[in-house]
Computed example of a mutant assay.
Amino acid sequence: MTRSPHVLYGLPHSLYTGPARAYLRKQGIAYVERTPRSEPFARDILPVIGRSIIPVMVTPEGEIVQDSVDIIDHFEANGAASLSAYPPGPRQTFVALLLQLYGNQGLLRAAMHYRWTYYDQQARFLDHAFAAGAPLEAVQNVMRRMQSYLPGLGVTPETIPLIEQGFEDLLDILDAHFSVHPYLLGAIPSLGDYGLLGPLFAHLGRDPVPADIMKRRAPAVFRWVERMNAPDLDITDLPDAAGWVEDDGVPETLEPLIAHMGQEMGPELADKVAFLAEHVRKIAPKDGDPVSAKPHQRTIGTTPSTYRGVAAEVGVQPYLLYLVGRVRRQLQSMSGDDRAWALDLLGRHGLRAAFDGELGVAVDRRNHIEVWAAA
């Protein structure tokens, strides 16, 4: 009998579906993609995961895996990856996890800004994407809710010029790197590539306004977006590239990217982590307690912070700690010169506070929801 394929529930314009889809393609894993509006999702998936969220993958054996980060790790842990997204060396793995965090969380502000602030200029494209065959009226409430998230992401009249400058700076940095390397750490896509792909494909590489900026300003970045979505390595334009960068090396062209990450999200990351640590101190949760009152509630409060020196009140998502914890565990596993190198990298770019030292709080995922866990 032919083995059934995996089922990926997602949407083309979904930021978090993109990394999972690209990973399945790169690994040659048989899958079919279905809309979360389908009957099986409502009948079989929602009762299990308890909230409407994508992506969700169902294995041929019926196991349900939610979140692109966990979908990738599911195959990595089962030995199904023909091209592991985890580099072989500790330094490259640390950078890959750090940039996975940046793509997953640090680029949300730019992704959502360009999608919704410029809605009038790309309305036909977005209406078509969100409707996906359904009546437009049925999804207008969803689109309005998405637009309402902008202030909590720090998108304000004062920050918008800085957000757009930051996006252009990022494109320049990545264009220089992808002009000589097909992926972040050589000729194999890492966790960092998949993390960056989410916003740089679904929002910034598809929506007309930012995609036009990307194509005109950074063609090598747009080429990388194409490459990431190809079912093979797709490096014909960089034929001399092969494997990971040798000797656990981190290309010099990535130093400006990590400096940019620090500028874009360093203060905010430290403020959010401090907020979460204080929140846990106050409520004293038990191990395994849900991080929020309802499974679909992603933000548990707001904290004052700054974005490129401008004050902003931002929402705090405990899920951030889930990703921070991955970087922290990698850092804790490093020793000697490797650990000193990582701490120096974080320190030079204003990122050390969130990853070094005792935190006293962590977030885990159990039964498809985020829960508090021992640090």
Rank of each mutant, 00 (worst) to 15 (best):
A123S: 14
A110T: 15
H113A: 11
Y114S: 02
L83E: 08
D120A: 15
V95Q: 08
T93G: 11
V95I: 15
H113L: 11
E76R: 05
H74K: 08
H113P: 12
L101G: 10
H113Y: 15
M112F: 15
L108T: 13
L99W: 01
A110G: 06
P88K: 07
A85L: 00
L98R: 07
Q92W: 07
L97G: 02
L99T: 12
Q100W: 03
Y114N: 10
Y119I: 04
A81V: 00
A96M: 07
N104T: 12
D120H: 15
N104W: 11
Q121R: 14
Q121L: 13
T93I: 04
A111S: 12
G103M: 03
F94E: 08
P87I: 00
D120K: 14
Y119S: 01
H74D: 06
Y119K: 01
L101V: 00
A110P: 08
Y119F: 15
Y118M: 10
M112I: 14
P90D: 02
E76C: 03
H74P: 01
Y102F: 15
Y119L: 14
R124Q: 12
R115C: 08
A81T: 01
M112V: 14
Y102N: 05
A81D: 06
Q122C: 00
S82H: 11
Q92A: 05
G103R: 05
R109F: 09
P88T: 13
H113V: 06
R91P: 05
H113R: 00
Y114M: 04
Q122V: 00
A77K: 13
W116L: 03
Q92F: 06
M112N: 13
N104P: 05
Y114H: 04
D120Y: 11
G89T: 15
W116H: 07
F75G: 03
M112A: 11
Q92T: 07
R109L: 01
A96P: 00
G106H: 04
Y118S: 03
Y118I: 07
N104A: 08
L108V: 15
F75M: 03
N78R: 15
Q92H: 05
P87A: 03
Q122M: 09
L97C: 04
A77W: 05
P90K: 12
N78S: 14
T117W: 15
S84V: 11
A110Q: 09
Y118E: 07
A81R: 11
R115M: 06
Y102W: 14
G89I: 00
T117F: 12
E76F: 00
S84D: 01
M112T: 13
P87D: 10
F75Q: 03
Y114W: 12
A110Y: 02
Y102T: 03
A111G: 12
L99R: 04
Y102P: 00
F94V: 04
H113C: 13
P87H: 02
L108E: 11
A85T: 06
Q122W: 03
F94C: 05
Y119N: 01
W116A: 10
H113S: 05
A123W: 04
G106A: 02
H74R: 11
A81L: 07
V95R: 03
T117V: 13
G79I: 09
L107V: 00
F75S: 02
Q105K: 12
Y114Q: 08
E76K: 02
R91H: 01
A123V: 11
P90V: 06
W116E: 01
R109K: 13
N104E: 08
A77P: 04
A96G: 01
G89S: 15
L98A: 02
Q100L: 12
H113D: 01
A85F: 06
A85V: 07
L98D: 08
A123N: 10
Y102I: 01
